[in-house]
Amino acid sequence: MPDPRRPTWGTFSFGLVMGTLSTAALLLLAAPTLVVLVTSFTDGYSLKFPPPSYSLRWYVSLLDAWQLQDAALTSLQLGVVVTGVSVVLGTAAALAIGRSRKGWARGLDALFMSPLVLPALAFGLASLMFFSTAGIELSFLTLAVGHIVVSVPYVLRTTLASLAQLDPALLESSESLGAGRLYTFRRVTLPTIRNGIGAGAFIAFMSSFDNIPVSLFMADARNEVLPIRMWQILENSLDVRAAAVSGVLIVVTVFAMVVMERVAGLSRQLR
């Protein structure tokens, strides 16, 4: 029997292959973000990497890019509305189906989660057909409704996961000590699932802010959202301003992520 501590050809080759592949994966994950960040500081008119010289000119040009600003504002407002509604609807539903092992609860769970595996583009098209058949004009509201359907699953998933960690004995002791249901919810249930709801809300916001498949069909000229606007810029002109917008988005995302990691332990909720 070989001594397991002595490096053998097997240990060496295993470490080499796993090390190489995981390093490649890490590089692959991190590089594009860094490339966009560096490119956004270019002084030139093309997306050359590395840039010939550096400047802040494309960031400055964002100050009077009113179309992009409008789109960003619409996306922000949309994200806030969608997150708010998703949290209320999703948390309520999670409380209802969380501890039930019954068939109806499993069925609803599958229904609410299905937007995650269904091709969202087909749902976007279906939504467009639904509202125009019903004679309802596309608006901010109809766009928000479409976004909520695809954002709710995130809130539901993280809230259900945190509910699973809640010991039912705690609820029973609270009740047997004379606490009312609302009081128990506020003092026992809510503190336990708060982080789950928080992480879910964050991901729901990001998924709405970044949504393409639904917005593609549901966003009209008056309600243009940022990802669609940026897609059009990239499709038509490869404008360097898109790099500057990307730079702003990356910085804001990293900041929000670090804050969420501190406040709600985001990475634990995502797993």
Binding site: A30, P32, T33, F209, I212, L234, S246, M257
Partner: peptide
């Protein structure tokens, strides 16, 4: 590691795709 993994998940798909246009 987990931050490196999650960051792309939370950066806009348009931004990530745009990076590939540059690359």
């Amino acid at each position: 590691l987990i931050l490196v993994v999650i960051l792309p998940l939370l950066t806009s798909v348009v931004v990530r795709t745009f990076a590939w246009v540059v690359i």
